[in-house]
Design a protein around this nucleic acid. Sequence first.
DNA 1: CTGTTAGCGCCTTCAT
DNA 2: ATGAAGGCGCTAACAG
Lengths: 336, 336
Amino acid sequence: MNTEKKVTINDIAREAGVSRTLVSSVLCNMQLGEKRYRVSEETTQKIKEVMAKYDYHPNNSARALRSGNNRIIGVVLSDISNRFFAEVSRNIEDWTNKYGYMVIFSNTDENAGKLAEGVELLYSRGVQGLIIVPCLHSEKIIDSYKSKIPIVLLDRDYAGSELCSVVLDNKKSASELTGRLIERGHRNIEFVSYSTTLKNIIEREDGYRSEMRKSGLETNIKVHHPEYGNYGQVEEIILHAAGNGTEAIIFATYHLALLGRRAMIHNNIKVPCAFACFNNSDTFDIYERGMLYVKQPIEKFAKHAVELLMKRISGEKAGSECEKIVLPPEIETTEI
Amino acid sequence: MNTEKKVTINDIAREAGVSRTLVSSVLCNMQLGEKRYRVSEETTQKIKEVMAKYDYHPNNSARALRSGNNRIIGVVLSDISNRFFAEVSRNIEDWTNKYGYMVIFSNTDENAGKLAEGVELLYSRGVQGLIIVPCLHSEKIIDSYKSKIPIVLLDRDYAGSELCSVVLDNKKSASELTGRLIERGHRNIEFVSYSTTLKNIIEREDGYRSEMRKSGLETNIKVHHPEYGNYGQVEEIILHAAGNGTEAIIFATYHLALLGRRAMIHNNIKVPCAFACFNNSDTFDIYERGMLYVKQPIEKFAKHAVELLMKRISGEKAGSECEKIVLPPEIETTEI
DNA sequence: CTGTTAGCGCCTTCAT
DNA sequence: ATGAAGGCGCTAACAG
C-alpha cells in the first residue's frame, strides 16, 4: 500500500525552490477565501503546480497539533438510526462542512451512562465543540463539561442549563395541534404520552391541556400514560377510546403513534377519526391521508445548532450568556 | 473558556517526578491490555494518580502525528438520513468503536461528483481507511484511490473492482422472493424496477426472471422500468395491472414500493394481492400484514465491512487479493 | 513579499 | 526499570 513515502511540505518547498513558510502561506490562503498571507501571484502559482504534481496533501494531525484546532466537532444524540435524528445528523453534517469542519457522532440510546461515555470519548479525542441531545438524568454530566468545551444543546434543554440550545416550542406545538382538531369539530380529544420528567414531553401535555381549557373543554381532557414501549397498554387505551365516543387522539411521540395505529389496525377500529403525532414519516404520508402532525423544522435545528457552536468555538464572547433558540411549530397535514 | 492551559505529558512527568517516557509508557499500556512496556507497579500507580488529579487527556493530534495513525475511518454512502443507511451507519459506528476508531461520514446523494468530493475530503483529512457505497459512474474515481488507501465496498460492488466488498446476494434474494410468491399460488407476478446499470438492481431482475423461468412461468414474466421517481408511470403500471389479473407485484426497491403502494391506495385498488420490496420499515410492518420482503442483514454488513477494513489497515497482506463477501438473503413476512 | 527560527505534544529508539 | 534525545509535519512569530 503506502510504499511511496508521503510527500511533505518540505518536499514541496524544495521542489519549488522556496521556503516552507511560503508553501504554508499558500496552503492557508487556499483553505480560506484567498489572501490572508501575502504571496506573489507568481510564486503562488508555482507552488500550486508543484503541489498538484506531487499530489501533496497537508498532514492534518500536524496542522491540528500546531494550530490547536482539528476542525472536528462531536455530536451526541439518541440514535442516529432513528428517523428524526438521522435527518438532523445529515443536516448538521452539511452545515458543519460549510465551515470546513467534520463531525463525529456518538449514540446514547437515551441512556445517561452511555452519554457520559460518549461525551468523554469525544472530549478526549479533542473535538472543538459538542452538540448534545440530552437524555434523562444527563444534566450533571453535561454540566461538568461546560467549562471545558463549547456545548450547544439540541432538541431538548433542561432547567438550569446555562447552555446555548435550539429546541422546538413543544407546548405551542401541542396546543396548536389541539386547536386544529377542535376547529375540525372534535371535542372528545384524548392525549397519549409518557410519565416522564423529560421537559419536551411534559410541555406537549401542557399544551394540550391549556388549549382544551381555553376552548372550554376542560371536562373533556383525558390523558393516558402507558409504560414506555408497552403495546398492551396502548391497545387497551385504544379499545377503551373506541367504545367511548372518542373523536380524536393525540400521540405525544412518533413511537406512540406507531403503537396506537397498530392497535387500531389489529382491532379493526375506525372510530377515532383524527390522528396526530409529532413527526412526519414517508409511510404515514401514504397511509394516513389528511392526518395532522407537527413537522420538526429539522434544517433549522441543524443550522442554528451549528452556527451557535461555531460562534462559541471561534471564541466570540466565549463564556458569556447562552443563547436559547425556540423554534415555532409548523402544523402540517398529510396529502389528502 | 480554555483559560487554563491544557496539561501535557510534561506536566504529568514533572509532577510525578519521572520522565516523559514513563508517562508515555503507562499511557500506552493503558490503551492496550496492560503490559507492553515494563513499568514498575509503584510508578504506574503514582503516574495514574497524577493523571487523574490533573484531568490529563493526551493530545490526539500529537499522537496521530507521531504514530501516523489518527484512528479515524471514513464512510461514504448515499444518504445517512435514508433509513437503510442510517441503520448501517449506526452499526458501523458501533463496530468501529470496538477497535478504538471513530467514523466520519460523507454523503453522495447517489451522485458521482459528490462521491469524488467526499472521498477526496476524507482522504485529505488523513483517514486510515474507507468504506464506500459506490454509486453510478463512480468506478473510476474509486479505482483511483485504491492504491493510496485501504478501501472496502459496501452494499454494492462493480465489475472489475479489485476491492474487498460486502454485498447481499441480490439475485438469490429476488428469486427466493419470487419462489415464495409462486408457492403461495401466484402465477401472474410482475416486476417493477429501474432501467439502470447498477449491478444490484440488475441482479434482482435476473433473479426474478430466472425463478419464473425455472417454474415454467416464462410467458408470465412482465417487467416494468418506470423513470426514477416518476410517480405517474408507476401509477399507470398499477392501474394496468389491476385490470389484467395481476396477482402480485415485486418492487425492486423500497422507494418503488412506496410509490406503488401510494398508487394503489390513491386509486383504491385491492387487486394485486401480494406485495414485496427490498427492505423492512416500521410502518409497512403495521400497514401491510403478511407482506413478504427481503430483510437486509444490516448488522452483518457493518460487521464484515469494518472487519475487512481493519484487517487491511493493520496491513495484513496489504496489497494482496481482495475478499468478497456475499451475504445470503433472509426472506421475511410482516406480522399477520 | 519571503526566509529563519522555534516549537506544538507525543512516541521511540537507544542508552543507562 | 527508567531517562535523554530526536523528530513526526506544520504554523506562528519574527526578521529581513
